[in-house]
Design a protein around this nucleic acid. Structure first.
Lengths: 345, 345
DNA sequence: TCGATCGTGGGTAACGTTTTCCAAAGAAGA
DNA sequence: TCTTCTTTGGAAAACGTTACCCACGATCGA
């Protein structure tokens, strides 16, 4: 009377029996390990196919690998992160590894929960994208499982990092705007209080890069940074502040595309036009930056490349946990679009 | 000489020894199982805290639960899905369960890989959001692990479903546009070939709802459906077709917000204005629909609610696998914004 | 007072893999 | 011919947890 007869999962023992070999032999074939003749491999593989056997990851976790890579994204909504993810999954497509994502994390507490969950589930490696946790916490994670950190400066001997050259990115934007004839170029930054973390966060680099580039262009007097947050609301708020300046800036460099969205909204509400009254540039070159009606000038971070590099580093580290850690820094490129133009004289 | 002394993980045996009880006792406390006195619980919990013990999910997978829920999203980029995800994670926040996401799936093959991976990893339950796999495949998954399917019509005795009432949603849009005085209201649909799947997909419901509502408003003559795809490009392409009609529609009901984005782009390129020359409505009420400069009229599906309901159904099914399956259908609401207005006489 | 029941606790055998041995049989070298 | 490798295969012990069952003492009902 039981509906679909809850039949038992096919195990390595079934395969062994069906192929008339030992379970050890099957295990060797599964892992491409040494000590199995070609004939035996063929025999075992046939049995695996015939029975539709798939190894149980939980059981594997107890002894060896789970062939699972955990990826933690800080915010599913930020359209930049899917780029990175594509780079990661693309590189792993033809391997045995499977990618699983931790859901959107905001704050150290949520990050801790997700990383713990990943460790407890025996993930073979972890990719942390723009984590906000303390360095000590990151090293704690890295000492439990091979780890690569994306989008955070500052290196550690325990984990590898992949970052964008944010200073250069900021420099590209300022150079572009200055080249168009702008002098009063303002910047909207993400406000960060913790001084230890501060130096490692990309936003700080972008702000520094902005200042350096302004000086390099002889615009030191015009340096104007508003600190809100890397969200649309943050951009909106920052723009409102900038628009009430007695001497309004003619261009705004927003630290992220979502921030630029908020700026556009505030500018529209103020009855001003882009780029007529104000040029706006973003950072990340997310999909909607390319969207026709918006057409936002932005900095492209090559998310794909970041993901690809992260995977390469991670697999290397899985193969040899004691290999010295390395840092990869990628160069951004500027994508000029219709939100930037020469200032109205 | 080994750098950080790769110290062993704390196990249930360590806890048992430290608390001077049996491992069985510790296990009981962990699972809130019957057969442990309050004093013993306290003693064990203290030991757990002092040692910083966390159960190993792999080992648990072999005997009991892993306290892991797998969520498969078809497309990370579509901003509607994070809403659902928030509903899911929000409901599970205060439980022991941990959510892990399968990365963006396009196509049956990718879906099969992800679902298999989740089953192999001993997930206690799976939420499939708008899957494209065949019904047979879904039932296969559901017979291996408790499953809830979101955003797909048609029921099964093996899994529960949560859907939006797409017919009503379409009706809301047509009613709104007709109420504004529009008569030539066109619709952009997602093209689907497989007839078996067709009937279960939300887009088909929306198209049907559109046709029904048009008839109900006496606009049968004006029914005009273009089939492209639920992407920005699809919207762009669909709009181009509609704009070359000898008798141009005055309003377009796009089957999804991303489609509406493509429409807006095409309209802009054609030198027309919204809503002056053309009213545009979307579906999903994604974040960027609310974005000031866009301000898209859309249908809100209450993604949060969908996620919450899915979790409820899933936990119920985990508790009793043989409970009869149920269907939840939520009612959408219309959010009128600035892309819809009365037609230019 | 005597069995039955209940509450509390533990012993032990799974669960499905991988890993660490070890054995047997040839092959190669002396 | 006698060692010494190599190759091929398997037996058995982990890995960390839970499920199943049993034991013990106390309480209860008659």
């Amino acid at each position: 009377m039981e509906p679909p007869a809850p039949r038992r999962r096919v195990t390595i023992v079934d395969v062994a029996r069906h192929a008339q070999v030992s379970t050890t032999a099957v295990s060797k074939v599964l892992r491409n390990a040494y000590g199995a003749s070609p004939e035996m491999r063929a025999k075992v593989r046939r049995a695996i196919d015939e029975l539709g056997y798939r190894p149980h990851a939980g059981a594997r976790a107890l002894r060896g690998q789970t062939y699972t890579i955990g990826v933690m994204l800080p915010d599913i909504r930020n359209p930049f992160f899917p780029e990175i993810l594509d780079g990661i999954t693309g590189s792993l497509e033809d391997t045995e590894y499977q990618v699983l994502l931790g859901p959107g994390c905001n704050g150290e507490k949520a990050e801790a929960r997700v990383t713990e969950a990943m460790i407890d589930r025996g993930m073979d490696g972890i990719v942390l994208v723009a984590p906000v946790s303390s360095r000590a916490r990151l090293e704690q994670v890295a000492s439990a499982v091979p780890t690569v950190v994306i989008g955070r400066h500052g290196s550690s001997s325990l984990y590898d990092t992949v970052t964008d050259d944010d200073i250069e990115g900021a420099s590209l934007v300022v150079g572009h705007l200055a080249g168009l004839g702008h002098r009063r170029i303002a910047h909207i930054d993400h406000h960060e209080t913790d001084p230890a973390r501060l130096a490692e966060m990309p936003n700080a680099r972008r702000a520094d890069g902005y200042r350096q580039a302004m000086r390099a262009h002889g615009l030191e007097e015009s340096i104007d940074v508003v600190s809100t947050s890397y969200t649309q609301e943050g951009g909106y708020e920052g723009a409102r502040q900038l628009l009430t300046r007695p001497h309004r800036p003619t261009a705004v460099f927003a630290g992220a595309d979502v921030v630029a969205m908020g700026v556009l909204e505030a500018v529209g509400e103020a009855g001003l036009t882009v780029p007529g009254d104000l040029s706006v540039a973003g950072y990340d070159n997310t999909t909607f930056a390319a969207f026709g009606p918006i057409s936002l000038t932005s900095v492209d971070q090559a998310g794909h490349e970041m993901g690809r590099n992260a995977v390469r580093l991670l697999l290397d580290r899985i193969a040899d946990r004691h290999r010295p850690s390395s840092r990869v820094m990628l160069s951004p490129t500027l994508v000029p679009r219709r939100t930037t133009a020469p200032p109205a004289s």
